[in-house]
Design a binder for these strands. Structure first.
Lengths: 256, 256
DNA sequence: ATAAAATGTTCGCTATTCGAACAAACGCGG
DNA sequence: CCGCGTTTGTTCGAATAGCGAACATTTTAT
């Protein structure tokens, strides 16, 4: 088989690549997979997919009922190997709770993974909008305040490539999707230090986000507050919520 | 190399096993790893560990600074392949928020992974104890109410084996660690449908948990409320919080 | 500065993993 | 219900990916 991953022979494990592709084939649309389905989604031969699935089953990451494979909770260890190796979720959680309680709005922290943001911590109050967003939820970066902040950390060249690959579509009639406007929004985030998404993700939802930086100044996450548009205007949100976010992010940066 | 995982040849991918062992070697104690450290923790040769780490780097799951490897946010996809393939976190989050707000206590849902519980959803109020527990946090099952509920789903034989392997130690002076007492607590959870941990995980912390079952009656998670011992006695907790938990778990079961 | 220990890298060899071919199961039309 | 085509799952001879012992390099200790 062709050596797909390394310029030099002997520095790559093709079976690992295939197995990880099979794991990633599982998801909301595919909570369970047959051998053929896994092969198709992971772009492997059925024989390869079968060996990977049987290996995952032997190791306890998947279970098999004779036809379908499902991932088991042990698979959480793989994702949480990352989470556990960074202090961020534990550090930010209490700060988010304070922030959410004080502002009476939903507070979140997310990181960038390719063209998506992934929520790693969240706090809501009873009156605030949960919107079914839980830790682990992924959203396209381009339509969210958080995503724009995170994307502002990329070079323009990387941004252009990502936008091209993503081919943004309108999530609401207000979603900005054309490249020059998106680049402009992201550049604004870069210069003013915060970003806003105004009903671009969901009608009635307005968000503001700021970057979270570590001790050496690298952006490691973004933190946001979200409000219902009926409760707060855009200017008010900047005036009232941005200071709270900046206080919170200073607390967090001090702990990283 | 010995075929370690399958009775028949040709049904196992040793490289996948090794790569997953390397991923799991990362964690709170090991946020970054050298080739030798990864080899030692994953019980592999340095050459094997090196190939796995380079493969993870090529695929975007890890980064390398010339000496140390670190996992990247892409590794989250592996854990969330499981989370995304089960609706539980999204379903329970709003219910937990209501439960937490109504009872003024911390509410959590966790699942069992071997001898540990993993928190998959959580809600706290300002007045409640956060205790640094975020989604993804793992605790030994034996010392927690949630763990006892989840363990009650195992057979006595499986329980004995697990307790033997775990070799429970006292987390506080009140932690139950001897096997007959532990088995008794877990059997109580089985018969009465709830479990309590009374300052066994942490002095000053008292918890009560109930099982969450799916439509066919299989236990899929456990949900708990935690209080400060100064605020509520054990009997009061059963009287006041158990009904709220049972209402919440019926709501959840109706959605699964 | 030197030696020992630890860590990282190489490459000949062989056992693992490949996928084409075959076997088994399923679905559909008559 | 049967036959045929399609889809899915399994096998095994062959090719090569991945192995680890040996070596190279770096780090640590004296």
């Amino acid at each position: 088989m062709a050596n797909t991953g390394s310029a030099q022979t002997g520095e790559y494990v093709a079976g690992l690549e295939k197995g990880l592709a099979v794991i990633e084939a599982f998801g909301a649309r595919h909570p369970r997979l047959t051998i053929s389905e896994a092969a198709r989604l992971a772009e492997l031969s059925r024989a390869s997919a079968r060996r990977c699935l049987l290996t995952l089953q032997k190791l306890g990451y998947a279970e098999y009922d004779g036809r379908y494979f499902r991932l088991t909770p042990r698979a959480l260890r793989l994702g949480y190997a990352y989470v556990m190796s960074t202090p961020l979720p534990r550090v930010v959680q209490p700060v988010l709770e304070t922030l959410s309680e004080r502002t009476h709005e939903s507070a979140s922290v997310a990181i960038l993974d390719a063209a998506e943001i992934v929520f790693i911590a969240r706090s809501t109050t009873r009156r605030s909008l949960s919107a079914g967003i839980a830790v682990g939820t992924r959203l396209s970066a381009y339509g969210t305040a958080t995503g724009r902040v995170l994307l502002s950390n990329l070079t323009d060249a990387a941004l252009r490539a990502l936008i091209r690959e993503t081919a943004p579509t309108k999530l609401t009639p207000k979603t900005v999707t054309d490249t020059p406007s998106l680049l402009s929004e992201i550049r604004n985030a870069r210069t003013q230090g915060y970003a806003i998404s105004d009903e671009e993700l969901e009608l009635g939802l307005r968000s503001i986000a700021v970057p979270i930086r570590n001790a050496v100044g690298d952006m490691v996450a973004a933190m946001s507050l979200s409000v219902q548009t009926a409760r707060m205007g855009r200017a008010e949100m900047v005036e009232q919520l941005l200071p709270a976010l900046e206080t919170a992010r200073r607390m967090i940066s001090a702990m990283l």
